[in-house]
Amino acid sequence: MTTSSGAQHQTLSVLVENRSGVLARVSGMFARRGFNIISLAVAPSDDPRFSRINLVINVEETSVEQMTKQLFKLVNVVKITELHPSEAVERELLMLTVAAGANQRGEVMELVGIFEARIVDVSPAAVTIMLAGEPDRLDDFEDLIRPYGIVEIQRTGRVALPKVRKAS
């Protein structure tokens, strides 16, 4: 996965009609045109007629302009907002289960503390941790926790909103 700090990726926030098959249309278009999706998140918007699809795309492989135009050709796509990393607030959620028996639990807990993560489940041999934050931070946490033995990991796609303009 590309990290969020580089300029290789960009987020497209796509407002679509809330109809069945729309996600298939969007992902199918990307597949057919040979565009790559790095991450994907879909959720209802504040208007029940529409859903919001957050797509993180690789802008080195294909021009964002061409992707956006092809996307906009889909009849159910209502609006597309391009969010450049420097102009957007991006967050992602990670859950992972790490094999942490009595010996390692302390060290794992220390990392949980540093990253302000939360323990959401615990058993004698393992803990399940949840961390929300910038995708970069999630990468760092994942790297640090890996040596303890990750049993299972799940990350959501990235969600993003444009930064609020500060009054000057």
């Binding site: 069945s20 098959g21 298939a24 249309r25 199918g28 278009m29 057919r32 009849v75």
Partner: peptide, 16 residues
């Protein structure tokens, strides 16, 4: 049908 023809139509709909 709508799955198969999605990439070869301007638009398609399954009428439910």
């Amino acid at each position: 049908t709508v799955g198969i023809t999605r990439s070869v139509t301007k638009h398609n709909e399954l009428v439910m």
